[in-house]
């Protein structure tokens, strides 16, 4: 049974038909058009599968499996949107999905790294920040700062910090955030949160799909392997 989380920039796969298989990543632009999977999530998921689990459900089920604490906030920062689930006493307490004001955060950060030829692994977290509400609108701050003599690296770092703070507030400003999604690999972004951050990597939603497949689907659904 092939599971996939179809993201904007990257898609994550897990083949439950192969014992001990690990999840893997394929760039979205390299996907074959006729690809079919058995169970999908992600904003493109419905195109590739007849069985779809919505992203918040996948995130929540992934979190339930990966996080042992009874109280937590799990925030997923992807290319296109941000979403979170919060649990209290082991029970779902709140959730949010921001595809408007969180628009294109991760995507914009990646573009900026390439455009200005920066390496987020070597940039220090700045003291100051821009007030950024979304990736698109926040860009003008960078251009203004660069025009006023601030280095490109510093301007982009302030922008990234602004985005992290925005995401932190969106998730309810908790003391600790469990972070999932592609942005976990960006140390500048992770270090910019004004709270403790525990990174879970890119595969939280795939974990949620795995749990859905194992515990929540009717038996007849469990085909062993997709032949594509």
């Amino acid at each position: 049974m092939l599971l996939a989380d179809f993201g904007t920039s990257y898609c994550k796969f897990l083949d439950l038909g192969v014992e001990g298989a690990k999840p893997y990543l394929i760039a979205t632009k390299k996907l074959q058009k006729n690809l079919r999977v058995d169970l999908a999530t992600g904003h493109n998921g419905k195109r590739f599968s007849d069985s779809y689990v919505n992203e918040l459900t996948a995130l929540a089920r992934g979190g339930e499996e990966l996080i042992k604490a009874p109280d937590y906030v799990l925030l997923d920062c992807g290319s296109r949107d941000i979403k979170y689930v919060s649990y209290k006493g082991g029970e779902l307490d709140d959730m949010g999905w921001n595809s408007e004001c969180g628009a294109s955060m991760g995507f914009t950060i990646e573009l900026l790294e390439r455009y200005y030829d920066l390496d987020f692994h070597s940039l220090a977290v700045p003291d100051r920040t821009f007030s950024v509400t979304c990736g698109v609108l926040g860009m003008s701050h960078i251009f203004d700062a660069v025009t006023s003599g601030i280095s490109e690296a510093e301007a982009v770092a302030r922008f990234v910090k602004g985005i992290a703070i925005n995401a932190y507030r969106f998730a309810g400003s908790p003391e600790t955030i469990y972070l999932s999604g592609g942005m976990c690999d960006n140390p500048l972004f992770v270090g910019s949160f004004p709270c403790r951050v525990i990174t879970l990597g890119r595969y939280a939603l795939i974990k949620g799909l795995e749990i859905t497949a194992r515990k929540h689907l009717p038996k007849h659904h469990e085909r062993t392997k997709n032949t594509e």
Partner: peptide, 11 residues
């Protein structure tokens, strides 16, 4: 919006 719909569904 679709994300609001998904929120209801997931809840």
């Amino acid at each position: 919006s679709s994300s609001t719909g998904a929120k209801i569904q997931a809840f």
